[in-house]
Amino acid sequence: MISTFTMSGMVIQLLISLLFPIGLLIYFRKKQLFSWKPLGVGILIFILFSQILEKALHFIMIDSSGTSLKWSDSVFLFVLYATLAAGIFEEFGRYVGFKWMLKKHREYKDGLSFGLGHGGIEAILIGMFGAINALVLATLINSGAFDQMIANALPADQAALLKEKLINTRFWEYVLAGLERVFAIAIHIAMSLLVLLGIRENRFIFVIYAVLLHALLDVIPALYQIGVVANIWLAELVIAIFGITALIFTMRIRKRFQV
């Protein structure tokens, strides 16, 4: 059984993942720091580059366990591939968006809006829908319908693993997952501004910086994913530090866009 208290954590994750980007959109509009087209392009770029192109490459490169490459058991190579793939696809996606789709939208507010679109849709697809999925499965487990509806559709070991994971995931882990989306949005906004600044100042090296920073951010989470790092607090701390640093960068870089 999954307690009501734990399920309330899923609801909190859902609400944070949905309401934070909406609240940020309202705030940006109120402060006249918002533009609809960059928001839409940010959403499109995330779906195309992260959810379609990057995942297509993962299908070729990563085995079914999701924790190693098909052609090597090396942890180092897996982490190197996973982190660089994330950095290259997402940051070059931003570059493509600003360079060719937003030629007339290169102000500070456009970078904010693009980052909000990119990070906001990620929060909804991963945070909100992840929470909804967990709520549905938890309800099925508590009602006794999981074994009939889900277990019959999956191999026995996968169904058992999924059920065990849901039962053992605690309230605070869902809350952490929601808060992670907040920091992730801050990071996406900062990265979008960094790439946009590189385009404005004709300094492609800024795009490379964004790729490397993105890859660096993902190292500890990738190690946590494959079990090398067992402490979830360490993984979340790294994301929080990057998120706070990204927020500071976002505020301080505004002057560069006013030149």
Rank of each mutant, 00 (worst) to 15 (best):
N142D: 01
V79S: 08
A156R: 14
A134M: 13
G119E: 00
I167Y: 14
G198E: 07
Y95S: 05
M191Y: 13
L176E: 15
Q158C: 03
L80T: 14
M101A: 10
L125N: 04
S72Q: 09
Q148A: 11
L161N: 11
I167D: 10
G130K: 05
K165E: 09
D147W: 11
I187N: 12
L194Y: 01
L140R: 14
G117N: 00
A160M: 13
N142G: 04
L84Y: 12
A190L: 04
I88A: 09
G178I: 06
W100Y: 15
N152C: 08
L196D: 00
G111I: 08
L193A: 05
I185L: 09
G119K: 00
F129I: 09
I185N: 12
R170V: 15
G198I: 03
L112S: 10
R181D: 13
L140I: 14
L196W: 01
P155R: 08
F76N: 02
F171H: 14
S72Y: 05
A186R: 07
H118C: 11
I126W: 02
I167N: 10
S113I: 00
G115P: 12
L112K: 12
L193Y: 02
V182R: 05
K99A: 12
A82C: 10
W100D: 04
L135F: 07
F76D: 02
L135C: 04
K103A: 01
F171C: 12
G119W: 00
T139N: 14
V96N: 01
L154C: 03
K103E: 03
G178L: 09
L197G: 01
M191N: 07
L197C: 01
G127H: 02
L135D: 03
E91Y: 00
A159T: 13
M149R: 10
S192N: 02
A186S: 15
D147F: 08
G130V: 09
F92Y: 06
I187C: 15
F78T: 07
R106M: 08
F98Y: 15
T169Y: 04
N142K: 00
L102K: 06
L196G: 00
I88R: 05
L197A: 01
L154F: 05
R94A: 09
D73A: 13
E107K: 09
K103P: 00
I126C: 01
V75L: 04
E164K: 14
Y174M: 03
R181H: 12
Q158I: 04
A123L: 12
L77G: 11
A138Q: 11
L116Y: 06
R94Q: 10
V75W: 05
S72M: 06
K99W: 14
I121N: 14
A159C: 13
I88V: 15
F92G: 01
G144P: 06
M128Y: 15
Y108V: 10
V136S: 10
S143M: 07
D147I: 06
K165T: 11
V79P: 09
I132A: 05
T169S: 06
S192I: 00
A153E: 08
N168M: 04
K103T: 03
W71C: 13
F183W: 13
L137A: 04
G130S: 05
H105F: 15
L196T: 00
G198L: 07
W71K: 13
S192C: 02
G178E: 11
E164L: 12
A156W: 07
A145Y: 09
A159I: 14
E180V: 05
